[in-house]
Design a protein around this nucleic acid. Structure first.
Lengths: 258, 258
DNA sequence: CCCCTTCATTGCGCTAGCGCAAAGAAGCCA
DNA sequence: TGGCTTCTTTGCGCTAGCGCAATGAAGGGG
């Protein structure tokens, strides 16, 4: 087991904020307490309403966190990738899961149960601090998304969802084109509070303008700059001075030449 | 100072989840570290973008937590009343406030600065646990609201906002009619992601049906039952067996006789 | 290789909700 | 008491986005 886990040391654990600041020794201890979980594509880590007994860190794959309303309309609250922590909030406070977590691809994760993680945090307060930071981060992101949903137009919301995905994957999924977002129209619709028809129409019109290339189950961003303008994350007049340090543009991308 | 604070012991502190499970002695120590803050109506505890240095617990009054988008459209993220904790998430994790907190009425609060609250939590872990519970609770509420905004119609969202307010005030603001919600149409619009026109129209039609009485700056709920049906928090066929224990109806209210 | 399923596109009509504008109602201050 | 400000209501026209339905494209499994 030790051996299996240490495989991930470089690729995942060093980039995982939950382990930030821990010594090698501490990380080893925390990993020893973990179980390795393999969830095949389209299967669930847990369902909305179940008692929250486990906490996970994604090693590889993607996980969709979604909530469903009584009429069956679904909303994607978050999409997790390698290094992300799933269920940290509820696992730390004795509740039932308010959302479902479904693997979008075959997913490997590390799992701890509630008591274990509570014990580890007591032993290693740094872990608790990191957990709190993760929660704070997630909370602020959700708050932003809430405001977005309340105030912004659909096109902008879709643009932001795409950019957020690109940003999130940036450098975390090795050997992957971060500009190629593997999401269906339906997924994007559920992430942005709209319908798959509207997403499809929007992507079509973007495709005409050369901003993206859309295909079955993916959208590839061809022109970050234009997308950023639509998302209003970027002033209309923006030009990169130095793409390496530009706040707006992803590191491997120069929006001047796009 | 001791004396001023002890005035609140019964009314606020015993109902405040942040102090739950603390001994009298511990509460006294925590209160000693607090400063009393008085914010007049329409003034701000803090503004979006400022460094998060303080954490507050509302003693009396109401506080609007809002976020503004670049075009100036505002969204109310939460409304705090007596016993609620403001800024707990950011104060615990070295960030800038992602929202503004504005007193809607003259407001009295207890304030601690970041370092103090961190120290107190270390001394008294129960405080940290309580804080985590508050955050988890807020997080889940926000998640629900997010789903609501993405999937539900305006009328239902307004109904839920009103009911949430009634629930929130229930028993916490002494000698106040919990069915009388003091919010302007604009406030309600910003809470539900719509416009004041739509809120006004909706309330008018509810008034015609005898569900509410609307006035300048307030809405009084006359028929909880019908509002709950609109909010879909209640099956259409619901009749209270025992209003005292009914999950759906507020304690002072029998929906059978309404 | 073909059939079947799943996903995406797009035309079309529709409606929920927006937002202007104008008029009224309620509080506030001098 | 009168005038000013702020909040509310409501008529009206408009449009963003919905959602059905029909068609097309892309896998996937036997």
């Amino acid at each position: 087991m030790e051996k299996t886990i240490s495989r991930y040391d470089d690729t995942i654990l060093n980039r995982c904020n939950f382990f930030k600041g821990l010594s090698k020794h501490e990380i080893t201890a925390v990993l020893k307490a973990a179980r390795i979980v393999n969830i095949p594509s389209n299967s669930f880590f847990f369902h909305q309403g179940e008692e929250a007994i486990s906490f996970y860190i994604v090693v590889s794959g993607q996980v969709r966190l979604s909530q469903i309303n009584p009429e069956g309309r679904q909303v994607i609250v978050h999409i997790f990738g390698p290094g992300d922590a799933i269920g940290i909030i509820v696992a730390l406070s004795n509740m039932t899961y308010p959302v479902s977590a479904e693997a979008m691809t075959d997913t490997q994760a590390l799992g701890w149960d509630r008591d274990t993680i509570a014990y580890l945090m007591e032993e290693c307060p740094r872990l608790a601090v990191n957990g709190l930071h993760l929660i704070a981060h997630r909370f602020m992101e959700l708050q932003d998304r809430y405001r977005e949903l309340a105030t912004e137009r659909v096109e902008r919301r879709i643009a932001r969802a795409l950019l957020r995905q690109a940003q999130q994957r940036n450098g975390r999924i090795p050997h992957t084109n971060t500009r190629n977002i593997s999401l269906s129209r339906q997924d994007l619709a559920e992430m942005t509070g709209t319908t798959l028809y509207t997403v499809s129409r929007t992507c079509s019109s973007w495709e005409q303008e050369g901003i993206v290339t859309a295909g079955r189950g993916y959208i590839e961003i061809n022109n970050f700059h234009k997308l950023l303008v639509i998302a209003e994350d970027l002033p209309d007049s923006h030009q990169c001075h130095d793409p390496q340090t530009c706040y707006f543009c992803p590191p491997d991308f120069n929006c001047n030449t796009a």
